[in-house]
Amino acid sequence: MGDAIVGVVANPLSGRDIRRLVTQASVFPTAEKANMIQRMLTAFGAVGVHRALLSTDLGGISAAVYRACSRHRDSDARWPEVEFLDGRPIRQTAQDTVDAVRRMVIAGARVIVCLGGDGTARVAASAAGQVPLLALSTGTNNVFPAVREATVAGLAAGLVATGAVPAEGATRQAKLLEVRAGDRTETALVDVAVSSERHVGARAVWDPATVSQLFCAFAEPDAIGLSSVLGQLAPVSRQDPCGVTARLAAAAPRQVLAPVAPGLVVPVGVGEIEPMHPGSVHAIDARAGVIAVDGERELTFGPADQPAVRLRADGPRCLDVPAVLAASARLGLLTTIHQPPGGAHDRHG
């Protein structure tokens, strides 16, 4: 099984945007991202992953892991062979994540782990194809990626990469929102928000008064971010084939108190709510503005662009960590029973 390969891509910039300033969003230190990767390498090694492909960055994550790899040679815990994908050029943009994930797919990665927030997961998903994706939270608005201990996530990724747990039963296909504006297309894993802002600017959306329309692939009552608004009014689970959309207006009679960003709980006026059926196209009402995908302003549009949003069923294949470890429990994959040396005679000896 020399092809038990896992890819790990980490966004050095996640958890650094303006929400540190306008709210009290957490800072996720570079050192902790590097620590998470090391904890995962330990888990990979423990379950027999042969090779780990790691993204490189100028933010210090890959440098820290590289130093750790050279120190680790003397340790007892077996790490897989680590290969750094020497991305050139490193642009320090989302394209670095796309390039790294593409190279991991080509190199035969059986699972791709992505460290970042919703934005990073969105970008990684766009390049992962049908390779199972495991998104771990190191960002700000974390609806899609899970907040989960990296060691446990690493075990799950490793068990699927080695084939010990078949990917079929351990993954679920996520939904996807596709936005078209003129000849440009973007995707979102959680929500698409139409903002009256004119520019992409500092990217994050934290003032719901600027949002006129909201589209959610899923809306959970306990989410953070804009999808939490519909999570309170018309919850939609990740497994539900449909999504949900609503028009927002500050003066609407129905107001929902929602955690629209970490540290920001505000009333949001909600008008008409409609389900989104897979494949159906929903037009954006505004003539001009900015479209935010998964909480980040990404596309500006004008009257000629006629933007629209469509719910697709063919999102990324997401690794279900609890399902993998439940399967390993059922199959006894992490259990070994040692026979006492010498058998019964020794036991009495």
Binding site: P12, L13, V27, L58, G60
Partner: peptide, 10 residues
Amino acid sequence: SSDNIADRAA
């Protein structure tokens, strides 16, 4: 050392 200077704010 911190790679991102902004990290030092914390």
